[in-house]
Write a protein that binds this DNA or RNA. Structure first.
Lengths: 230, 230
DNA sequence: CCATAATCCGAGCAAACGCTCGGTTCTACT
DNA sequence: AGTAGAACCGAGCGTTTGCTCGGATTATGG
């Protein structure tokens, strides 16, 4: 029982109070995100981030005790933006018929992730201690809670027995993974819209919804994504 | 358009021909896997791997042009073991009734990944250039092809129209993700068996199978996993 | 048996890394 | 205006990294 992996300190050292300091702080975090997005986690060195942010290296260490804390804050920042956008989209679809709502929600999720494609890719595939960052767990818990409450509302509306917690957990997890996969490694032979439609269908069928006889021909689909191949 | 991320050289420098050299080669790759498993990607330094393998650092560079190529080979090695085990399990379930077959297959998948939990975790979450490794793409393609052929067989047997390619792609992707998730971040409030059962149910329902009225009480479930919490 | 090639080796180089030090500059408040 | 403390700064330290060099050792096959 010799060497286990050490858990790094992830909390910021101190919060900026003056306006000038807040600008510095933001500049550092945003520079971090840019480096992550453009050059990957291995290139995320403290010197490089400070230089890109236009601040001295020592200023960076005023606010972050070490590189890991900086990384954690960058991740939190990106995640915040993503959840905010997702939350705004959620407002717009409450009350729609379930089938359209599902497609719209998935489309919003896809769009939000796609807009941050590069940085999200690096975060989920390269940051070694991603699951030790509190914000990540919180985001997961939030989405799971949302899924559960949707399940409850839906079950009550349809007067059907609700799905088990395990099933909801699975569906939420799988949906997130599918969207991530579709964005990060888009399969050559399916368009995003096709994938989202298929995904909505799978989820609805898995939750016991009627298989929904093919809907009317697309009168120009709701633009959820940019076009792929021409 | 200045600095893009360089694609590292991933192929081994040369293959060992003599028996002694083959032992050295294996020792290096296995030591790499051990370091990855026990200490993560950041600790995977060439000097450390060579030392653990019991060979000189220069011997390592006889066979691998750089650190990335070594990593790629380690990943290939682990993946090989996993696929081999999975292939063996597949033999055992051909011909079983579809519901049992699905559960058995998922159980086998879970068990194979769970056995390599630590190293798999590091590989999927930390190796920065994972998707540039040919073996990874090959493994994905293989599993997808398997899913497609199963779909075809099943559709013919049930005289039902086959699922679309997009749907099969989604189901295969999501299933893989769900198993990985269940192993790497096991939710506190669901046992693995519970998850596998729920997963099988979701897949069967999504593929249009009858919802299967609750089966007989478990006469001792096929042991697919170790027990969780006492 | 001997020449040729294959294999093995570790000291150490150049570069890059995370982070500290000792101090200057700016801001808030009396 | 004066001062305490918040904010900022870059040279450079100690360490670690990936990798090379020049040569020693071992196997092959004629």
């Amino acid at each position: 029982m010799a060497s286990r992996r050490a858990i790094p300190e992830l909390a910021p050292r101190k919060r900026p109070t003056q306006a000038r300091a807040q600008r510095t702080y933001r500049a550092i975090v945003e520079a971090g995100a840019r480096v992550l997005e453009r050059h990957g986690y291995e290139a995320l060195t403290t010197n490089r981030v400070a230089e890109l942010a236009g601040v001295g290296i020592a200023s960076l260490y005023e606010y972050f005790p070490n590189k890991h804390a900086l990384t954690a804050e960058v991740v939190r920042h990106v995640l915040d933006g993503l959840l905010a956008e997702l939350g705004a989209s959620t407002q717009l679809i409450t009350g729609a018929p379930p089938e359209d709502a599902m497609r719209a929600w998935l489309g919003a999720m896809y769009a939000a992730v796609a807009k941050r494609r590069a940085v999200v890719r690096v975060i989920v595939q390269e940051v070694p201690f991603l699951w030790a960052i509190p914000a990540v767990d919180q985001a997961r818990a939030l989405l799971l809670a949302l899924a559960r409450s949707t399940r409850d509302l839906d079950a009550r509306a349809r007067r059907a027995p609700p799905l088990s917690d395990a099933t909801v957990y699975l569906l939420a997890t799988m949906t997130g993974a599918a969207v991530l996969e579709a964005v990060l490694r888009p399969p050559a032979d399916h368009t995003p819209d096709e994938l989202i439609t298929a995904l909505a269908e799978v989820i609805l069928r898995a939750t016991g919804q009627p298989p929904a006889p093919r809907r009317a021909p697309p009168r120009r689909g709701p633009r959820t994504t940019g076009a792929r191949r021409a």
